[in-house]
Amino acid sequence: MHLSVSTETLWIDTPHGRLFASRWFAQEGVGNGAKPPIVLFHDSLGCVALWRDFPEQLCRATGHEVIAYDRLGFGQSDAYPGTLPLHFIRDEAAGFFGHLKAALGIEDFIAFGHSVGGAMAAVCASLYGQHCSALITVSAQAFVEDRTLEGIRVAKEQFAQPGQMGRLEKYHGAKAPWVLAAWTETWLSPAFSDWTIENTVETINCPSLAIHGQYDEYGSDLHPKRIARLSTGTGEYLIVDDCHHVPHREAPDRVLAAVSEFLGAAAR
């Protein structure tokens, strides 16, 4: 059955500033509240707009409501007050996601994160263990690997070239320099070098699926394997052939099929 999808945008107040969010709803009686919404956590340079049409595709493929939001400092959300702290991953789950959850009246949910958003989704699955039905990560990092740092150094050099900052300004406006620095300077900082997913995430009791591109320039397949081991229940990982860091854009059909199958099994 072909599902029609409707969407809405909204703003969420927090003590530190407003967050921009979007919601996608499947019509024709599917996604009517019986299924928990999928909450998307974007990557280090991302925002709602940079998910492009994936949220709609995800909604259509699964029948679940999909919610995406711009973290504070990103996209259309307000500027972040100061430098991003080294404990920002846990802060997102413990603080800002809590405001989103309360404002939208979310009870049970599915956490879905890309890149560093995957680590944030994993923390949410741990902190809200009684309410997180499933965890899905895509290209998430589990530790600070040499490949991760080299990929960030290359990207930092590329963004230093004339005209390249405009790529970020298109989505983040005047916040673009902060967005870039929040990514590169945090991850390249010696003080962040001992960060690991195991030291950030406690027990995950829900089923989990860690998706990773075969040629991900920001991490080897050690990352999804470590993330899959976090779950006390079913923890799976999937390596998507011929993909780099954005499998949901490079191979959306394969990712959507894997997610739909995983959620179907998790619901049984």
Rank of each mutant, 00 (worst) to 15 (best):
A140M: 08
A122C: 04
G129N: 08
I106M: 01
L104Y: 04
F159L: 11
G113S: 10
A134T: 02
R153K: 13
G163Q: 13
F112Q: 01
P224S: 06
Q214E: 15
S139F: 07
T148L: 15
A174L: 12
A210Q: 05
V144W: 10
V154G: 14
F143E: 12
S189K: 06
F109K: 00
R147K: 15
L86V: 10
E185D: 14
S115V: 08
G173R: 11
C124K: 06
T184K: 09
G95K: 13
V116C: 14
A93F: 07
A191K: 05
G105D: 07
Y171N: 06
K170M: 12
Y128E: 01
I106N: 00
K101W: 02
S139D: 13
T186L: 12
S133C: 06
G219D: 03
K175C: 07
G105P: 04
Q158N: 14
R226V: 03
I211K: 08
E202V: 11
D216W: 03
Q161A: 15
S126F: 03
L149A: 05
E198G: 08
S133Q: 10
P224D: 04
W178K: 01
I136N: 05
E202K: 15
K175P: 02
E169D: 06
A103Q: 05
G129T: 01
P224L: 06
G151P: 05
Y171Q: 07
E145H: 11
A142K: 08
R147C: 11
C206E: 00
G105H: 09
L127V: 03
R147Y: 12
L209I: 00
A119R: 02
F143T: 12
S220Q: 10
G166F: 05
I110E: 00
I211L: 11
E107W: 06
A191H: 05
G166A: 09
V144T: 13
A160H: 15
Q161W: 13
L86M: 11
L100D: 03
E198W: 09
P224E: 03
I89N: 01
Y171V: 05
L86A: 11
W178Q: 02
G166K: 13
V154F: 15
K156Q: 14
G117N: 04
G113Q: 07
K101C: 03
G95W: 13
R147D: 10
E150K: 14
E202T: 15
L104R: 08
T196L: 07
N205Y: 09
Y218E: 01
R90K: 14
G163L: 06
A94E: 12
D146C: 08
T184V: 14
L149T: 07
G163N: 12
F159S: 05
H131I: 01
A102V: 00
A122I: 00
